[in-house]
Amino acid sequence: MDAACEKRPIAISSNLHPEGFDELMPKTLATATVDRLLHHAHVSQTSGGSVRLTQALAGKGVTQLR
């Protein structure tokens, strides 16, 4: 992150809201991480169910090779 910061695009995907980062790490580190990630960021939020889960439940998921 540090080497790419302010030099090239970085894409990050998470199902955890940034407010929940302090559950993974100490609050001061979580605050610094979120601050760095969101500085100059374009945030896209999605909603709806999981396409992969829907396909798997319908029997259209990944099949094993034999």
Rank of each mutant, 00 (worst) to 15 (best):
P9N: 10
T46Q: 05
V34I: 15
V43G: 00
L16H: 05
T54N: 11
L38D: 02
L65H: 09
C5S: 10
G48M: 00
T28F: 12
D35R: 06
M1D: 06
G59R: 08
S44C: 11
T46N: 05
M1W: 07
S44Y: 15
A30P: 04
G61N: 05
A4Q: 08
R52D: 02
I10E: 02
V51W: 14
E23W: 03
P9A: 14
H17T: 00
M25A: 11
L57V: 13
D2H: 11
I10M: 14
S44P: 00
A58I: 06
K7Y: 05
G61P: 02
A56R: 13
K7Q: 12
H39M: 07
I12N: 02
L38H: 01
P9D: 03
I10S: 12
D22C: 11
L53C: 03
P18N: 01
D2V: 08
S44F: 15
C5L: 14
A11W: 14
T28N: 15
I10L: 15
T28V: 14
G61Q: 05
T31S: 12
T31V: 09
R8V: 13
R52T: 07
L37N: 00
S44H: 13
P26N: 10
K60D: 07
E19Q: 12
I12L: 15
L29K: 08
V43A: 02
V43N: 03
S14M: 06
L37A: 04
I12W: 07
A3K: 11
L53G: 11
K7M: 09
G48Y: 03
E19G: 04
L65A: 10
P9M: 10
P26S: 04
M1F: 10
I12R: 03
E23I: 03
R8Y: 06
L65V: 08
L57N: 13
K7S: 08
V43F: 04
V34H: 00
M1P: 02
V43Q: 02
R52M: 09
L53D: 09
T33G: 00
L24V: 05
P18V: 01
G49E: 13
T33N: 01
H39A: 06
N15W: 04
G49I: 07
H17W: 10
L16K: 10
G48R: 03
G61F: 05
D35E: 15
D35L: 05
L24R: 08
A4R: 10
L57K: 15
L57D: 08
D22H: 13
A4S: 09
L57A: 13
I10N: 04
S50I: 01
K7N: 10
C5N: 14
N15M: 06
D35S: 15
Q55R: 11
Q55N: 06
P9I: 03
S50P: 00
L16R: 11
R66P: 13
A30V: 07
C5P: 00
A4M: 11
G20N: 11
T28M: 13
D35A: 12
A41W: 10
S13C: 14
N15K: 04
L29W: 02
A30H: 07
M25F: 13
T31N: 04
L57W: 09
C5E: 14
R36Y: 01
R66D: 12
V51E: 09
L38N: 00
A3I: 06
H17K: 08
H39K: 04
A11T: 14
Q64V: 12
H39C: 06
R52K: 13
S50T: 02
I12M: 14
C5F: 15
G20M: 08
D35K: 06
